[in-house]
Structure formats: C-alpha cells, structure tokens
Design a protein around this nucleic acid. Structure first.
Lengths: 243, 243
DNA sequence: GTCGACCACTTGTCCGGTCGAGTGACCACC
DNA sequence: GGTGGTCACTCGACCGGACAAGTGGTCGAC
C-alpha cells in the first residue's frame, strides 16, 4: 500500500503545518500570521481551503482571526487538563484484584442522597456493589455502585465475584445500556464509621464525598456511583478557560 | 433603522431554523434530515452555505453527519451544566458590602500551597486580600486572593477599603491584565483555627479547600484564589458527557 | 438464495469567483 | 494639529462547479 493512500485532506495538512510552525516558534505568540492570500500561494490551495484550516485553528484556540486585520498567534492551546472525573472513573474501572477488592454486593435498601440520586423512594431495594480501591496494598478509595433493579436484572452485578471487565463493560455487554452523561455532587464531610473502618482512617477524618448519577441518552439513571476519597490522600484538579 | 440591518448571516439563519425544527419535533430524534440538495432548494442558498450550517449543528451536537447516508438528528444538546467554578467566582466577584466583608488586605508572606501556586519561594511577600462571604448575614465562605507584588503594584488591592467593582475588574482596568485560564486544586480537609473563627465553625469541621491559579494568556500567574467552603453549607455540582 | 454490477443518492474535498465589511496608513485640506 | 477621504490590504459571507468517496437498493446471472 502506497503512502499516498493515507494522505490527509489538504486542509488538515495546512492545519498541521501551521501548528508545527507555532510550536517551533516560526510564528511566535502574539505575532501575525501570513495573510490568506499568501497562504493560498504557499500551500497551492484554494482560498476556502486555507480559510477552512484557519477556522479550525481558531476554533481550537491556536490563533485568533480579526476581520480586516489578519490572523494572530494565540499559542499552543493548553489541553484542558481533563478533570479527574471521579464518578466516571468509578463507573468505568475494571475490577483488578491487584488494585481493588469487592467488599460486598447484593440487594440493599437505599436511603438519603443515594435514594435521591437513583430517584427511588426511601427504603426501596436496589443492587449495590462495593469495592475498596488499594494503592500499594493500602486502602485509598471506597466506591459503591448502585443500580436500579431493572437495570441490574440478568447481570452479575449482585454477585460478589469479580467482574474483571468492570461494571460498565459488563452492563453494556449484557444489557446494551450505554452511559451518555454523568452528573456529580461533591462535598466535604467526615467519614462515616463504616468508611473509617473500611478505609482504615483515623476518627474524624475529612473526606471528599462524590455522588455521581450515570444517565443514558434519555436521562434515565442506569447507575449511581458513591465515591469516598480520604482528604489526606486525594486532591482533584481542574482547569478551565476564564470567561 | 431597518430590521434588515440586523439580519444574521444566512448560514446562522439555517442553523436556527433547523434547531427550531428539532426542538418542536418536526425533525424527531434519530430521524434523517432532508438532504443537502433539498435544503439548498428550500433555503435558497448555496450548497456550501447549507453545509456550513450543518457542520455547526454537528459540532454543537444537534445532528450527526454520515458520509453517503445523510444527516441524522441527535437531539437537543444538553448544555453541560456549568460547574460552579469556585475559583473563577472568587476572582470575579464584586465586593458588595451587603454580602461580603473585607477582613484584611495588605502585604503578607506566602507559605505552603499558596507559595507553590504563586510560584514564589516560601516566605516571599505578596499582596493578600481576604473577604468573608455572607449569606443571610451568616458567614458562608472565606475567600483570600493573593497577587504577585508586580501585578498588584499601582492598584488598590492592598487597601482594606471596598473595591465595589471587584478585584478582577479593578485589575483589568488599572493594569490591563486579562485572565485567560484558571487551574484549581480541590481537597477535603479540616478547617484551620483561623478559618474556624472567621467562619464561626464548630471545632473539627470539614471544609472543601480550593486553591485556584488565575493565569494570563502567557501562563503568568496574576492571582491565586484560596477558597474555603464549609462542608455543611456547600456542595459543588458538575455535569459532563460519558466517554 | 447469493453475489456482483450498476445506479441514484448522499456527503466530503476542493477550487475559483464576487461582493461586503473592516482596518490602518497616507495625504490633502482647513 | 485635526479631520475626512482614499486606497491597499484583510477577513467574512456567499455562490457555483467539479470530482471523490460512501451508501443502499435493484436487477441479473449463477
């Protein structure tokens, strides 16, 4: 197979060329790019092809286009450091016996924020699956996944044995449900007695508590992830543009 | 002035028309949109104008385009509920005496995470501006803004009097600095003695601690916001797509 | 029933052209 | 020195055309 078969479209080639020149300093931050008509000549392309490339670079944050003035280098866009989305991670994780342990699984009654998150009345039954995440063999995080009965029926989620592919994959495979969106609530509180015991914490240790609802495309709850992160072990990071 | 002067570009009109039809059910979710050439005829536009509109709708998540098949309705994109960005809010807020009180302001030495965040050696001087946020007259949040000396010079930030427009506007006006990006670190910890006193907390109260770096377009730190949210009063919310 | 060819339809890429709107520099006039 | 007009340059919107690549249905041959 000839390498010609894999040539990206011209507009993509222009995007890449300009990105490289910004990265290697040929086009310094704050400076003006060559005009569209110069680029037309340089790249041997049509103007709208060049414009298409420039519009993509503008959308991505590499450059800024000003009507009547030209295009200016903004710089290498900082890829928004993807916030460690604790809820998503908890739901997505595979169950590796080297780094986690299923503490229990089965049918339980829901209460408080979990009942709210599942949209069930207090005391309703749901399927619960709890695991302790270990780092270097030490308890680091407690994750409890909750599933509505109808979602969990026909799966192994209520069984204490390891599902090595993890709950999400298992659910997708067996029930064909796909998560579309996740909403999280996050607070600082003191660890409960149970959490203190399972996580081997000191009495009165502050934790980050995260309750994440895992929703499908129709906004039905397919799972709730209850994540407990001891304050002295965990810090969440986030990065976003200023308005 | 004739209303014609405010007519949006044609491609924007097409975007809006299609959005409305998706919203009112004319184009149901999952169904196929009319082809490009049909739209050319309907909207009396050029094909590339129609394509431009469709590409925007695709980028926004309203539709999905498949080569050789057509365009399909995805649905009304869930606007990611903007996470309450505590760091940004803290930096942006105006200083309204009805809802906040400046507790102190002036030159201080930096230490620990604040020194790190400012990129200064331990013990270096910086300008500090602390305010207590009140809700219904009760202490609710403690915000300490830190500024490098060079950034704060020539401003009123080290003065305890109220800057009603807020630190950010003041800084932008006086020093022409513009924030471009914000990075946050967030943890659960116990309130310090000072925080306990200022916020009228019980001993040993867990708080959400947020240290936000406010960066300009060249990634220089223009401010650090140190935000303390008592756990029993505050909960952060976030919403994001599942991968 | 299966497979391949053909066809109509569809989107993807690319080109070239025109006109409008905006910017900044320069020059003439007051 | 200030103001207004002009000009060259620049990007924004829009059009039309051509060819490539992909999809799905139909039909004929085996």
């Amino acid at each position: 197979m000839s390498s010609l078969e894999f040539a990206p479209p011209k507009y993509v080639q222009i995007v890449h060329a300009i990105q490289e020149r910004i990265q290697d300093g040929t086009y310094p931050v704050g400076e003006k790019l060559p005009s569209e008509s110069r680029m037309v000549r340089e790249f041997g392309a049509g103007r709208s092809t060049v414009v298409r490339a420039l519009q993509i670079l503008s959308l991505q944050g590499w450059i800024e286009r000003e009507h009547g003035r030209g295009s200016f280098v903004r710089g290498i866009p900082q890829v928004a450091a993807e916030r460690s989305h604790a809820g998503a991670s908890a739901f997505d994780a595979s169950e590796d016996p080297k780094s986690s342990r299923i503490t229990n699984a089965g049918r339980e009654s829901v209460a408080g924020p979990i009942a709210d998150a599942l949209g069930l009345p207090e005391g309703s039954p749901a399927i619960m699956r709890r695991r302790l995440v270990l780092i270097a063999g030490e308890p680091s995080e407690l994750v409890t996944l909750w599933f509505p009965l109808d979602v969990a029926s026909g799966t192994d989620l209520d069984d204490g044995r390891v599902i090595s592919i993890g709950a999400r994959e298992h659910l997708q495979m067996v029930k064909k449900v796909r998560p579309a969106r996740i909403t999280e609530r996050l607070s600082a509180r003191l660890a409960t007695e149970q959490e203190t015991a399972l996580l081997s914490l000191d009495e009165g240790t502050p934790v980050l508590g995260i309750v994440a609802r895992i929703l499908d495309a129709s906004d039905n709850v397919i799972a709730v992830a209850d994540v407990v992160l001891p304050g002295d072990l965990h810090e969440l990071e986030d990065s976003y543009p200023a308005a």
